[in-house]
Design a protein around this nucleic acid. Sequence first.
RNA 1: GCUCGAAUGGUGGAAUCGGUAGACACGAAGGACUUAAAAUCCUUUGGCCAGUGAUGGCUGUGCGGGUUCAAGUCCCGCUUCGAGUACCA
Length: 945
Amino acid sequence: MEYNFREIEKKWQQRWVANQTYRVTEDPEKKKFYVLNMFPYPSGAGLHVGHPLGYIASDIYARYKRSQGYNVLNPMGYDAYGLPAEQYAIQTGQHPAITTVQNIARYREQLDKIGFSFDWNREIRTCDPEYYHWTQWAFIRMFGSYYDNAQGKAMPIEGLVAHFEQNGSEGIDAACSENLEFTAAEWKAMSEKEQQEVLMNYRIAYLGETMVNWCPKLGTVLANDEVVDGVSERGGYPVVQKKMRQWCLRVSAYAGRLLEGLDRIDWTDSLKETQRNWIGRSEGAELTFKVKDSDVEFVIFTTRADTVFGVTFMVLAPESELVATLTTPEQKEAVEAYLDATKKRTERERIADRRVTGVWSGSYAINPLTGESIPVWISDYVLAGYGTGAIMAVPAHDSRDYAFAKHFGLEIRPLIEGADVSEESFDAKEGIMMNSPRPEQKGECDLVLNGLTVKEAIARTKEYIKEKGLGHVKVNYRLRDAIFSRQRYWGEPFPVYYKEGMPYMVPESCLPIELPEVAKFLPTESGEPPLGHATVWAWDTVNNCVVENAKVDNVTIFPLELNTMPGFAGSSAYYLRYMDPHNHEALVDDKVGEYWQNVDLYVGGSEHATGHLIYSRFWNKFLYDLGYSKNDEPFQKLINQGMIQGRSNFVYRIKDTNTFVSLNLKKNYDVTPIHVDVNIVSNDVLDIEAFKAWRPEYNDAEFILEDGKYICGWAVEKMSKSMFNVVNPDMIVEKYGADTLRMYEMFLGPVEQSKPWDTNGIDGCHRFLKKFWGLFYGRNGELLVTDEAPTKEELKSLHKLIKKVTGDIEAFSYNTSISAFMICVNELSSLKCAKKEILMPLVVALAPFAPHVCEELHELLGGEGSVCDAQWPAWNEEYLKEDSVTYSISFNGKTRFTLDLAADMDNATIEQTVLANENTQKYIDGKTIRKVIVVPKKIVNIVIS
RNA sequence: GCUCGAAUGGUGGAAUCGGUAGACACGAAGGACUUAAAAUCCUUUGGCCAGUGAUGGCUGUGCGGGUUCAAGUCCCGCUUCGAGUACCA
C-alpha cells in the first residue's frame, strides 16, 4: 500500500467529527489542562501559511498532554467585532454581518483541513448576542464597582454610597479621576444628578471628559495602543487630540497589581519588560508650590526631589487648568496665541518636529524650601496626562529642561560635583551633591544635601518634605485608563440609556441588548455614531425593552447609547466563556470555573503585548475581585509564535525588452527586477511555461538561461498579495497533505522565531512520512509488521527518541524533535525493523505532529480508540547505557592506541580522570602524556610533552 | 535616545550544564535503477593544504580583547540587524 495521504486524512477527519473525538467535558477524576490560541479576526483574505503556525504548535502540545492523561481544553472561536471586520465590510460594500459569516465559513473550511483537535462544540463568536451578553454584563458590573485602594480590590459602588452617607469622603481611599472632599451632610444635600456625577468619579467603567486620540478618517477614537507614531495602527491615518465625552475603564487602578502579577507568570522576559514599560511605574514625590502674591497653590510630581535647589523655572502643560489661573493680564495675548498654535499641531507633528516652544505665564511660584521666586512657563513638552501636568524644571540635570532653558536663556545651576553642564545636562542619577543649598539659599532652609550621593539625597529630601508637610511620597504610573467608546457600528452596543444626560444601566435580566439594523453603517468624519441611523433605538423603562415605533419622550422612553464597544471588549474574557459557552445563567458556572481555573498555555503574537494582553489581565482581575474568575492571572504560560514572512521571487527583465535573464547572469545586463508569483517557482527555478501563461504580456517572453534553467532571485518581505508571495495552506495540503504541512511548519525553525516561509524544504518532511509509512508497508504494498521481540539496538533507538521528544515538546522545541524522528526512522529503516513493540510507541509519539497518518497506523497495529488517548510512552534509561567505551587515540597520523579507561567513566569527574591517566602514563613516539582531559563519555583534550 | 533580543556552511537551522561546532533537512555534485522521466536508493558536501589512498594538518560560529585544560556558549569593548518604547519629569 502506498502512503495515500488524501484518503487517510479525509477518512480520519470525518471519523473525528462522527465520533466527537475532541469533545471535552469537565472530569473531576482527571487533571485539567487548558490550551488556548489567540482567536483570529476572520478577515476576508482567508488564511495564509503563517496563520496556522501557532495553532499547530499548541495543537501538538494539547495532543501530547492528552496522551499523558490530562483532560485538555483546546477551544477555538472568532474575534468577529471591531475595526478590521468593519473595514473589510466597508471596502467590499457589504454588511459586516454577512461578510463576517462568509469569512468565518472560509476560515473554518481551511482550519478543518489541517486536522486540529479543537472542540468545536465550544466555538464562540464575539458578535453573537449569546456571547456579547456577557461582555455587556461585565460592563454593567464595572459601572457598579469602584476600586478600593486600601483593600486592593474592586468593591460594589453601594458600599461607597453608604460610606458617603455616614462619613462623606472622609477615610475613603479609592481610585478616582479627581480627589473630592465633602461631608456626609454635603452629600445628602446633593441632587441625584450631582450624586451621580460624584459616583462617576469612582466607577471602574465611567463616563469621562477626556483628551482622546481622534482619527477623522476612521471616524472614531482610538486607544493608546491603537496609535503608532501618531497615526492609526490600522490604515495609517492621522490622529489628532480632541476632548470628548467617552466611556472609559479605570485600568489605571489596577496598575500596581498588573505590574506585580508579572512576577508570578511564565511569559518571556521581553514581553514582561514591554508590559512593565507600558505600565511605567515611577517612584517620586509630589511637592506643593505656592504662587507669588496669590492664594493659588499647585502640585508637581518629581522623581528627582534631590534637585529642588536647582529649580530655576516651572512649566505647565498647555492643557492644564492652571494656565488660565496663572496667566497675568499682560501675558494673556501671548499665552492665548501659544495655546492656539499648540492645539493646531497633531500628535504626529509634535513627534516629527521637536522644536522647543513655550511662553511665560507672567506669574512666579515660590520654592517651598528656599522661598525663591521662580517664573512659571507654559510649554507642550509637559504632558497634561502624566503626573499633575506641571513640573519643576531643573535644567542642569534634565535634558528637556536644559533645551528649554538654553532656548529661552534661563539659568542653569549644576548640583552634582564634576558635572559639566556647559554643553549638555547631566541626567544620570549618580554623583555627589553640591550647591544644595547654595550659600545664598541657606537662610531660608535647614535641609542640607551637600556631600550626599544622589540616591541618599533623594531619600533625605522626601523625608524632609513629609516632615514639613510640603508634599508627600507618591508612585505614578504611565498606564492610562482605556477609552471604551467607539463611534462605530460593528461592535457591542452598550447596555446604557440616558436620563437627564446621566447614564443608567439597563437591568441585567434584559441582556443582551442586540445590535440593531441601521440604514447606513459607515462612520462619519464628524464623529456621529452610525447607531444614530437606527430607526428604533431607545429604551422603554416601563416594559424594560428596546422600543419599536415609539418616540423618545424622556419620561418613560429614553435614548440608548449610540457608541459601541471597542475591539478589545469581546476579546478580554473570552477564555472564561470557552469553559462554559452555552450557559444562559452566568458567564461561567462557578463549579466549571473552579475546575478549569485559567489558561495553562496561551499561544499568540507578541503584537498584543500592550493591548489585548493588558486589557485581558485587567478584565480578569476585575472579575476575580468579584469572584467570577478563579485565578488572578488569566494566562499562566505564554508563548509568542514568530511571524511568518513572505519569501518573494524575482525575474529580471532586460530594460526595454521582453527578455528575462537568469539570476547569476543578470550582472551583464541592465535589468529591472519584477515580482513573480511564488506558486510558479519551485526551488527558485521558474516554471517557464507557467510564467508565459501567467500574464498576457509574457506570452512571447524570451529567456536567457543558465544550465538550461531560469533561476529566480528572492527576498524576504511581508506576505502580501501585491508581492505575489502568499502561500495558501490549502494548496500545501492538497499537494503534500496536512500531516506534512504540520510537520514542515514546525520543522522550519523555533516556534518563537520569525522566519520567512520557504516551500523549498517541504519535500524533506514529506519524504520522512513516506519512509515512516515504509516501516509498515513494503515496496509492493505487503504488510511488514511482525510480533517479533525487538533487539537491544532497536530498543535503544526507540528509547533515545522518546526521551528526546518528551523533553523537546516540554520545551516547545518541535524542530529538534522532528529531527529525532527522522534519525530514528532512518535507523529502524536500515535495521529493517517492523516490530509492533517498537512501532506502537513510535506511532503514539508521532501522533501530535502527524495525527492523521498515526491514527491510520495505530488502527493497523490494533490500537483501541483514537491514538490521542493512547498512553504517552515512557523511556527506560537501561536501554540507553553504553556497554563498553573504548577510546581510540591517533597521533601524528601514525600511532594509534587505545586508552583503557575505567568502566564507570560515565560518572567520572575531570580531576578523577586526569589522575587516573597520569598514573598510567603512556609513551607515544617518545613523548609523555601529561594530561588527558575527560568529561563523561568523552575525551576532550590530550596534553603531551 | 533608552530597554530587550539576535548574528553559526550555498539555505533553514542543531549543539539542553563551558566539553568532538555544523545534528536534521533543503540545495548542489556524482552514481545505481529506468528506453526516458518521475519516484526511490547510495556516495560526497564549511574553507584551505598535503596524499594514489585509508588519512592527516591548518583554519573556522559578526569584529577586537580576556577568563579557562577547554569558549558558538562566560566577562569587557565594538559593529550590524531586529523588536518594543519615546518629551513619563
